[in-house]
Design a protein around this nucleic acid. Structure first.
Lengths: 122, 122
DNA sequence: TAATGTGGTATATTTTAGATACCTTGTAGG
DNA sequence: CCTACAAGGTATCTAAAATATACCACATTA
């Protein structure tokens, strides 16, 4: 939804179309923007990866976080969980077709992030 | 940094280059992916907007949130704060050159979000 | 036999978000 | 003049989320 602002005769402004619900940007962010979610999706770009490997790839994220985000992504239909074998336990996660549709945006983000050499405050 | 996985003779996999620090995707997300941040940037795309108008545009975000995010964005050099007049207080926020460089990604996200008709669970 | 790896869970603490009320200054309407 | 509301926030409190740490059962490796 497009918001627009009207300026009246005295230079005052009024919002005509406020977002009554989270708008598209915010909705999209809830899917790929949550903490670690983008990173998880991106690290699955080359194929299925096992749980512990994925956890190690994401420096800083705890296993609990990775687990939680993977469950969300599974529910949202972006990631598929494969049980490779029980006893010894082995599980891998891979992107679904829908999950793959997000890769372009994430790659653009990566490029943007790299070219602007972003610093993160502790 | 690129992580890679080595598969050994028994089909087991090992991570060779884990991300030691948050990788580019994660860094980028910290800039434009925080809650409401993407929305704020996107709603400034057509020019300077006043604080209360911006708050109203973002259905759901409290003024405290908007204020906090704007201060972060200002520190990160993506947004500029203009005092239009003291007494009566009037302030507007607009994107910097750097802030504008994020618009393409956000617009792609919006498009992706719209075409896939994302539902958000309460 | 001890160490390590698998895929997680449990618990507690810290950090962040969200709701609500309030502040000062100023203007508009009745 | 009085009330009401708008501006741009801040203060306080509660709820939710992230993080750290330890632990589990089982299996393989050294």
């Amino acid at each position: 939804m497009e918001s627009s602002i009207k300026t009246d005769s005295k230079g005052r402004k009024k919002v005509l179309n406020a977002c009554l619900e989270p708008c598209a940007i915010e909705k999209g962010m809830r899917l790929i923007g949550g903490k670690w979610k983008g990173s998880i999706i991106y690290h699955l770009k080359d194929g299925a990866v096992r749980f512990n490997d994925l956890s190690r790839m994401l420096g800083g994220a705890t296993k609990k976080m990775v687990d939680q985000r993977l469950k969300e992504l599974e529910q949202e239909g972006m990631v598929k969980r494969n049980v490779l074998s029980e006893r010894p336990m082995a599980v891998s996660y891979e992107l679904t077709e829908f999950g793959r549709t997000a890769l372009q945006i994430l790659d653009d983000l990566r490029q943007w992030s790299e070219t602007h050499n972003i610093e993160i405050k502790s």
